[in-house]
Computed example of a mutant assay.
Amino acid sequence: MTQRVDLATVMDQLAIDALITDYARAVDDGDWGVYRGLFSPDGRADYSSAGGVEGAADEVADWMEQTLRLFPMRQHLIVNRSLRFDALDGDLGDTAQVRADYYNPMRMDPESDAPDFECGGRYAFSVLRTRTGWRVTRVVVHEKWRRTGGSGSTKPTS
Rank of each mutant, 00 (worst) to 15 (best):
M1R: 06
T2R: 08
A8L: 08
L14R: 14
I16P: 00
L19T: 01
I20W: 02
I20H: 03
I20A: 03
D22F: 05
A24M: 07
V27H: 02
G30L: 05
G33E: 12
V34W: 00
V34S: 01
R36V: 01
G37P: 02
G37Q: 11
G37Y: 03
L38T: 02
F39S: 00
P41R: 04
Y47S: 03
G51W: 11
V53L: 06
V53R: 06
E54F: 10
E54A: 12
G55Y: 02
D58I: 08
V60M: 00
D62R: 04
D62A: 11
W63S: 02
T67M: 08
M73A: 14
R74H: 03
Q75A: 11
L77I: 10
L77T: 07
S82N: 07
S82G: 11
L83R: 02
L83P: 01
D86W: 10
L88H: 13
G90M: 03
A96Q: 08
M106C: 07
M106G: 04
R107E: 04
P110R: 10
D113M: 11
C119Q: 13
C119P: 11
C119I: 08
G120E: 13
G120F: 09
G120S: 12
G120R: 08
G120L: 09
G121W: 12
R122P: 07
F125W: 00
V127R: 00
T130F: 05
G133T: 02
W134R: 00
W134M: 01
V136Q: 04
V136P: 00
R138H: 10
V139H: 01
V140A: 04
V140G: 04
V141N: 03
V141R: 02
H142Q: 09
H142W: 09
E143F: 15
K144Y: 12
W145E: 08
R146N: 13
R147M: 11
T148L: 15
G152Q: 13
K155A: 10
